[in-house]
Amino acid sequence: MKKYELMTIYPLEDEKSKKGAEDVKSTLAKFGAEITEEKPFGDRDLTYQIQKQKKGRFVLYTMKLNPSKITEIDKEFKINMNLLKYQFVRLDEKESK
């Protein structure tokens, strides 16, 4: 298993952001990801509109994950209407220690 960071952006509405976060965590758990840290970054302006939204709620997850599962997780995230944008970044072994 490799270490990854996942930056997510949810809509500002509380119910949508909570539902989006729950869906993200359940999808990650479904594919065997071990979330080691969840760090809210707060509400921020978006560089460009996403789904007619000008602001979003940012959350950063740090996790351990099998790299072969990212494609499957990506497919699930694309159909999550409460998740505006996301990006996986693999952490180098030197950075993660």
Rank of each mutant, 00 (worst) to 15 (best):
D74Q: 12
T47Y: 02
F77E: 01
N80P: 06
A21C: 11
L60D: 03
L46Q: 10
K94D: 13
K64A: 09
S26N: 14
K25E: 06
I73L: 09
K30P: 01
I50D: 05
I9P: 00
K54P: 03
K69T: 15
T71A: 15
E72C: 04
Y4V: 09
Q87G: 12
G42F: 09
Q53T: 11
D92I: 00
K55V: 10
D43E: 15
T8A: 03
N80A: 02
E38V: 11
R90C: 09
Y4A: 05
T71Q: 15
L12V: 13
M1D: 11
I70V: 14
E34W: 00
K18N: 03
F31D: 02
F58C: 00
D43V: 12
E93D: 14
S96P: 07
Y4P: 02
E72Q: 12
T36I: 10
K25A: 02
L60P: 05
V89W: 03
L46G: 09
T8D: 01
G32F: 07
L83F: 06
T71R: 10
I79D: 07
T71S: 12
F77P: 00
E37P: 02
S68N: 14
Q53N: 13
I73K: 04
K19G: 06
K94N: 10
F58S: 01
R44W: 06
D14E: 13
N66V: 10
E15D: 14
E38F: 07
K54L: 08
K3E: 14
K85R: 15
K64V: 04
D45F: 09
T62C: 01
S17H: 01
V24H: 01
Y4I: 11
E37N: 15
K25F: 02
K2E: 12
D43C: 08
K3R: 15
K39T: 13
S17D: 03
E93L: 11
E72K: 13
S17L: 06
A29S: 14
K39G: 04
F88T: 00
M7T: 13
K18P: 02
F77N: 01
P11A: 06
K16W: 03
Y48P: 08
K2V: 05
K39N: 13
E5S: 08
Q53H: 15
S17M: 09
K25H: 05
F41M: 14
K54T: 15
L65M: 11
I9D: 06
D14H: 08
Q49S: 12
D14S: 11
E37H: 11
P11Y: 02
T27H: 05
D23R: 09
Y4H: 08
V59T: 00
